[in-house]
Simulated assay, not measured.
Amino acid sequence: MYTLKDKELIFVFTGPHGAGRKTVAEMSGSTLDMKQVISCTTRPKRPAEVEGQDYYFLTPDQFAEAQTRDEFVELSTINNHFYGIRSNDIQRMFLTSGSIYLILNRFGAATLKKLYGDKVVRIFIYANRDILEKRLRESGDSDTDIQQYLSHYEEEMAYRDECEHAFENVDLAHTVFDLTKTLDRTLGRNLVDLD
């Protein structure tokens, strides 16, 4: 497992599916020059997804081999697909940035917090159930997928109180602005105009 250096921080964006955590994370990360660590998955690639940008898409055999070599610091199974974060990917991202971010479900966020303690800052991105359902429908998810995602809504929301920060994502620009100010203070960079 990669050992974090003094000033290295891992920001973990979590929250219910459809809350916009990926978009918020990417926009905030870009503003603050933080690099994203990409997860590995055995899930099939969706049409708009890009290898190495959205996920590293591995076959079940490749994933099992990496697991045998103890490459993962975090593992989870969602809808019969495996997901994991490789220690080497964390280390590689820290070579180009003092702070990195990941987009994980509550289980992955809890695992990293347990591994790295105060070096992990969890950011919970959420919206109410009706907004999530509307966003999922607009993104073309099937009724079955939407019901499956929403069936975990209360459990996901219960994790909010365990996170260091929580932001309701109703208006994307407002959410990103508030979050960027908060993370800028955490990083002590003073890059963002705080007026």
Rank of each mutant, 00 (worst) to 15 (best):
residue 178 D to N: 15
residue 33 D to F: 08
residue 174 H to D: 15
residue 94 F to I: 02
residue 17 H to F: 15
residue 119 K to F: 01
residue 96 T to R: 15
residue 187 L to M: 05
residue 17 H to D: 15
residue 31 T to V: 09
residue 183 L to Y: 02
residue 67 Q to G: 04
residue 145 D to N: 11
residue 133 E to W: 05
residue 91 Q to L: 08
residue 105 N to Q: 05
residue 80 N to D: 14
residue 113 K to S: 10
residue 43 R to I: 04
residue 10 I to K: 02
residue 78 I to Y: 13
residue 102 L to H: 02
residue 23 T to W: 05
residue 94 F to E: 04
residue 99 S to Y: 14
residue 174 H to G: 07
residue 164 E to G: 07
residue 13 F to D: 00
residue 190 N to A: 15
residue 41 T to N: 02
residue 77 T to F: 04
residue 73 V to N: 04
residue 22 K to M: 07
residue 64 A to Y: 01
residue 59 T to Y: 14
residue 137 R to W: 05
residue 191 L to V: 03
residue 76 S to K: 00
residue 129 R to F: 15
residue 166 A to L: 04
residue 174 H to I: 08
residue 142 S to P: 00
residue 162 E to W: 08
residue 70 D to G: 10
residue 107 F to M: 05
residue 86 R to A: 05
residue 187 L to P: 03
residue 170 V to M: 04
residue 138 E to R: 09
residue 132 L to N: 01
residue 145 D to P: 00
residue 124 F to P: 11
residue 110 A to L: 04
residue 47 P to I: 05
residue 35 K to S: 10
residue 84 G to D: 02
residue 43 R to H: 12
residue 120 V to Q: 05
residue 153 Y to G: 10
residue 59 T to S: 14
residue 124 F to W: 10
residue 102 L to P: 03
residue 80 N to Y: 11
residue 139 S to Q: 06
residue 138 E to G: 08
residue 141 D to K: 07
residue 10 I to W: 07
residue 124 F to T: 13
residue 89 D to H: 14
residue 127 A to P: 11
residue 194 L to C: 05
residue 34 M to D: 00
residue 129 R to G: 02
residue 155 E to A: 12
residue 54 D to Q: 06
residue 127 A to C: 14
residue 93 M to R: 10
residue 114 K to M: 05
residue 14 T to H: 01
residue 138 E to F: 11
residue 23 T to N: 04
residue 10 I to N: 07
residue 74 E to W: 02
residue 176 V to A: 05
residue 116 Y to M: 12
residue 152 H to W: 09
residue 174 H to N: 14
residue 73 V to F: 00
residue 1 M to V: 09
residue 186 T to H: 05
